[in-house]
């Protein structure tokens, strides 16, 4: 378990003091994938670096497995760091070493014998799917392959925690997904706690169990990914949620339909968890004398269930439409009337 107590980091700059991380309190359970999302400058990068003391907190504590990381001596800290893997946006591989030697690097640091190193490297190469590339140099690999080397290297000393610093931000969408799948895979296989920071809601949606939203050094919202997705409270969170639930042009695309024949009202239905599988629309059509026009819809899956939004146009007698809307609300589906004649 990782516990952050009143964590704060101040930087002195020429323009005065900057509070990069402001009084953050978080608890991250063993074995979970915890995401921190925020725009650049929100302090998430500083936050993740304080977990392994690459940045020293100005005040507050970082506890990993009941141990205060700030209290460790230099050699204790080095030992503790061997139990915390880290991967980076720009991979940070040694270009002068082959894939194998890069993966062996943390083992050399830990003083593992050459024979055991080679065995472990072979295992890791298989785990991350880089068979046959062991003798290549990083410059001969694609971005996704480089990150796989980064992951293998981070896992070499069997850590309990993996820190991911914008690990997919430099990758294309397809490669991002394959790296995320790999992370979920090792989380499940090895029971590893994963803490990741990102500015992409897609990453949170796809692999995180819980999420914290950061703005100006503070955690403004925190909770299960599905809850945060379905009921975002803060403006910042809503913006991030929109990244994955609605294509940006949704509102403009729908606006020109408003008032057209057969679409007197436009509703946005939001489904979460098992609701997403209910046949609400069928029930509405069967039980009420209204016409339903499906305009747009999208379902996203998260680690704790699915989440979707559906835009429909309704037409019919005003009273009948009101009754239909009331019915939908009874189904515990969130309804927002975004247009009404």
């Amino acid at each position: 378990m990782i516990r952050l107590n009143n964590l704060q980091k101040l930087f002195q700059t020429r323009d005065g003091q900057v509070t990069a991380v402001d009084n953050v309190n978080l608890t991250i359970e063993k074995g979970e994938i915890f995401g921190v999302i925020g725009y650049s400058g929100a302090g998430k990068s500083t936050l993740i670096r304080m977990l392994n003391m690459l940045e020293r907190p100005t005040s507050g504590q970082v506890e990993i497995e009941e141990r205060d990381m700030g209290d460790l001596s230099k050699s204790e800290l080095r030992l503790a760091r061997q139990g915390i893997g880290m991967i980076f946006q720009h991979f940070n591989l040694l270009w002068s070493r082959t894939v194998k030697d890069n993966i062996a690097f943390p083992l050399e640091i830990a003083g593992v014998s050459k024979k055991k190193r080679n065995e472990r490297v072979e295992e890791l190469i298989k785990l991350v799917g880089l068979e046959g590339r062991g003798g290549s140099y990083p410059s001969q690999l694609s971005g996704g392959q480089k990150q796989r080397v980064g992951i293998a290297r981070a896992l070499a000393n069997n850590p309990d925690v993996l820190l991911c610093d914008e690990a997919t931000s430099a990758l294309d969408p397809k490669t991002t997904d394959s790296i995320l799948d790999l992370l979920v895979d090792i989380n499940e296989k090895l029971g590893l706690t994963i803490v990741l920071i990102t500015h992409e809601m897609h990453v949170i949606r796809k692999i995180c169990h819980r999420v914290a939203v950061m703005e100006q050094g503070q955690v403004v919202e925190e909770g299960d990914v599905l809850n945060v997705f379905s009921r975002p409270r803060e403006e910042m969170t809503k913006e991030f949620v929109k990244q994955v639930t609605e294509p940006e042009e949704t509102e403009q695309a729908l606006a020109h339909l408003f008032g057209e024949e057969g679409i007197s009202r436009v509703l946005q239905l939001t489904f979460t968890g098992s609701d997403a599988k209910k046949h609400v629309i069928t029930d509405v059509i069967r039980n009420f004398n209204v016409n339903v026009n499906i305009l747009q819809g999208k379902i996203s899956t998260t680690q704790n269930g699915s989440y979707g939004s559906l835009f429909i146009g309704l037409d019919g007698e005003t009273e009948e439409m009101d009754r239909a809307i009331a019915f939908v609300k009874e189904q515990q589906v969130e309804v927002e009337v975004i247009h009404s004649d």
Partner: peptide, 12 residues
């Protein structure tokens, strides 16, 4: 970044 990565691995 490479130096930072090495520190994160506990290098002396």
């Amino acid at each position: 970044g490479v130096i930072e990565a090495s520190r994160s691995m506990g290098a002396t």
